[in-house]
Design a protein around this nucleic acid. Structure first.
Length: 217
DNA sequence: GAGTGCCA
DNA sequence: GGCT
């Protein structure tokens, strides 16, 4: 029994799963913060609405995206990058709510990454059929800082692979309130999301939302 | 850089 | 798996 097993939201039960070196799934970790997170999610996407970004190859991504924080991940014909402004409005992204930041930093610390200070939070909305093919998060400056991913709403099957795109990924069901942290030796592993099945979440309707926290700048 | 998608 |  290690310290991870006493993380907030665990209700005393062992709810940490180790996905690899420097990679952990904290089941239900965001539970105590969920009401505040959902309220702030609604406010944030009212300011910066979801939109389907275009890949550099010219294809429309099935996942609808927004951002909050100083930097936001964007994609268009020019490529992938972090931007200070919402390209839809030309204005800065909304601030990262404390209700987002606090559990993200706490989850990182619980996974062994003390001092994580995210400046970017990508907000993804997965509707039925939406997916994310295997990819690496590699547009950030400093790969010593981990990735923190918070799942909300409908469950999804997360694919957690290896250093090569051809490594067969683990399939992990992620539910409302689950948090995944990966960094260190796992920082650049390929990951993705299987196509979403139909469903309705009691709080968030026919959607999965994912908050991905990064130190991008 | 692309390939966070699409095709075979 | 391969893609220029």
């Amino acid at each position: 029994m290690d310290l991870f097993d006493r993380a907030p939201g665990s209700s005393g039960l062992p709810r940490t799963e180790h996905l690899g070196p420097g990679a952990v799934l904290l089941r239900g970790f965001a539970g105590p913060s969920l009401a505040d997170i959902v309220g702030d999610l609604r406010k944030t996407v009212a300011i910066a609405p979801f939109r389907h970004m275009i890949t550099p190859g010219g294809f429309r991504m099935s996942v609808a995206m927004s951002n909050c924080g100083a930097l936001g991940w964007v994609s268009d014909r020019s490529g992938y990058r972090y931007s200070r402004e919402d390209p839809g409005s030309g204005r800065p992204w909304p601030p990262m709510p404390d209700s987002f930041r606090t559990p993200a930093e706490s989850a990182a610390a619980a996974a062994g990454f003390q001092g994580f200070a995210p400046d970017a939070c990508l907000i993804n909305r997965y509707d039925p059929g939406a997916r994310m093919t295997l990819h690496q998060d590699k547009n950030e400056r400093d790969f010593s800082q981990p990735i923190v991913s918070v799942s909300l709403g409908l469950a999804a099957v997360f694919l957690f692979g290896g250093e090569s795109r051809s490594d067969r990924p683990a399939r992990v069901r992620l539910a409302h309130g689950d948090v995944v942290v990966w960094g260190g030796p796992s920082r650049l592993v390929f990951h993705g999301v299987m196509p979403m099945q139909d469903g309705v979440h009691p709080l968030l309707g026919p959607h999965r939302f994912n908050l991905t926290f990064r130190k991008a700048g």
